[in-house]
Design a protein around this nucleic acid. Structure first.
Lengths: 352, 352
DNA sequence: TGGAATTACGGGCACGTGCCCGTAAAGGTA
DNA sequence: TACCTTTACGGGCACGTGCCCGTAATTCCA
């Protein structure tokens, strides 16, 4: 029931090396003031003992607070999707608080590129030790990444990735595969002569997420020789009236649409349209476990939702920073989330 | 960057109450040796300050080791399903080690009730502070639970529940709903005149999991007025030859079976039979993300696998014990896992 | 009223690490 | 040689809590 009595840690290293614990400490944190000779000797002993510092004692003794920042889209009246990652971040925060880690959240408007740039400025001025970002705007994110690299601040991306940057980790979906899964579900019982409609509703044009998803979606049709014709539409306004207008037109031009695939969480707007226009025979698939979508799932208007555990993304993103800054443990650079399939029958147990 | 300078914790309480930290400590751990008067005074201050003990310091100062036990089925040649919960348990262990928590794993043979009883004996003799159990055998588990209650040892169940016992927590699937989801997927593109076959392959008869799952499966058919006839078969031998023999007979009797549902992870045996007898047009659904099953998923013989995150079950089960014994935080009694749907297209990102 | 038993409480070390401060030794300069 | 700077290292307190041990204060009993 009692711990073994071996001498542990720094003290034991000091004893074996015939130095004081202070000297060992200097070596461990590679500070100056140790001759090369003793340094080598101590390092050898550390290696031999496979010394693992006691994080409890370390964090207790250290009076430094580690400050982390998170930069996310604000919850808007259009979607509360981003409340899920925020929850995960808060969950991580409450676990890390014990270890003297503090988290500050910065929010920006997804429909306003400037607010993103402004907040990035605030984050960079804050002197944080690590940063989590949802990189919604590519160019601004590039600048941000460059600045972080210069200052040697680790940063992680969640939800969507911008390849070619030196983020500590990416935590989010494999978008292409996600679209691929969507196509599989959509065609699973689709009649061959029916058309398929891809719908992209978004104000921002330069978001390449949609392109990746659509690419994966089409790849499934190719790989499996699906005979169905694919129609696509971009809608640049997100309000119901605009969406309904565009959809009315598309459905007028294409009488035999059997299924629709929405590339983001605005699928509930399409569901609303289908229900109002009595077209519920059309299979409908879209993204994200948000309330409006779940309501239409319950109502049999949406067939499947695809989700990528946004809550977990926030949690893991913060934990990746924690692993690096506190535990000093390695972190996997690519962290693809599961592509979850949510239906009317299993949604009540889904954990965002 | 530095922590605030307020006086924290026990010291501050002691200062306010005009006593020593030792006395505060006695109150906090409700030990004897404090007069009712000062006890009340100190408790009032604790409440007023909303005092949260520093777990780092607490675990560091305490020389007690907390011992946890886990009792699981062994990985057999029939299935490596139980390696997943074991992984989760190991993951939890490595996190808790920092806090002076040790984990010991006990394994039993799923086909041998006696081995379960024997191991339960060992676990109870071990003097553990908390126990995680996969309650595969009902009667033995009841006795075990009674003994734990007597000794005031908290225990959690994973993977399947035995209602009416006072487990600290149940972490696993809602089996009935899980069968319900299976039915939905199976019928999603099933032609109305086809029959549906339920297959239960298991040596143990008194496992009520299968009953729950089948019940949920049939409930879906009722709720949705599915016209399909349901055929069922119990197979008490688990080797391929026996299963093939039984299935040959059933398929001989019922020429128009369009879909099959296997109530556990042995779906790969059925897949093997279907492939060998050139019946791959039959839709097939079963349970669990084990290698053999994934191979047949890849091969288009199995359409969907249903999974309940066994890895996470192990992790969360251990964490529930940790929360109770170390952090002294409350734990939710019912912890239903998501009912995950795994397909050929998304399995590569599935996290067990 | 005296002594023993019991109760109520304080002092202080320990856990393993971080880090400030002091100082002996080594090296440098005139 | 005398004095100053730099280097290399040790002593020791602190972090917040657990808990042993000692002792003053109180109660008990004859």
């Amino acid at each position: 029931m009692e711990k073994e009595n071996e001498l542990f840690g720094v003290k034991e290293i000091a004893r074996r090396a015939n130095v004081s614990t202070a000297t060992v400490d200097r070596v461990l944190h590679n500070r100056t003031g140790v001759s090369e000779k003793t340094k080598a000797r101590i390092n050898a002993i550390i290696k031999e003992m496979d010394y693992q510092p006691n994080i409890l004692a370390s964090r207790l003794a250290s009076r430094k607070i580690i400050n982390l920042a998170a930069l996310l889209p604000d919850v808007s009246e259009e979607t509360d999707f981003w409340s899920a990652p925020l929850n995960g971040i808060r969950r991580a925060e409450s676990e890390m608080k014990q270890y003297g880690v503090q988290v500050q959240v910065f929010l920006f408007d997804l429909n306003d590129k400037d607010s993103f740039a402004t907040q990035i400025g605030h984050v960079l001025e804050g002197g944080f030790h690590g940063i989590l970002v949802s990189p919604s705007f590519i160019e601004e994110t590039r600048k941000f990444a460059a600045e972080c690299s210069r200052r040697k601040i680790p940063y992680v991306f969640i939800d969507s990735d911008i390849p070619g940057l030196h983020s500590l980790s990416y935590i989010g979906p494999h978008l292409r595969k996600s679209g691929y899964v969507g196509a599989k579900l959509l065609t699973y019982r689709l009649e061959p002569e029916k058309k398929v409609l891809i719908i992209n509703i978004s104000k921002e044009i330069d978001n390449f997420n949609y392109l990746e998803i659509e690419d994966g979606f089409r790849a499934y049709f190719n790989d499996n020789n699906q005979p169905n014709e694919i129609v696509r539409i971009d809608i640049r306004e997100t309000d119901y009236q605009s969406v309904a207008r565009h959809l009315t037109y598309v459905f007028h031009l294409n009488k035999d649409i059997g299924a629709a695939f929405v590339t983001n969480s605005r699928v509930h707007t399409v569901a609303s349209f289908l229900k109002n226009s009595h077209r519920t025979h059309v299979s409908l698939i879209g993204y994200d476990f948000v309330k409006e979508n779940v309501d239409y799932l319950e109502d049999n208007v949406i067939d499947f939702l695809i989700c990528h555990r946004p809550d977990d993304q926030g949690y893991r993103g913060m934990m990746a920073l924690y692993q690096t800054l506190v535990v000093n443990a390695p972190v996997t650079k690519q962290n693809y989330m599961p592509i979850d399939i949510v239906t009317k029958e299993n949604y009540e147990f889904y954990q965002n």
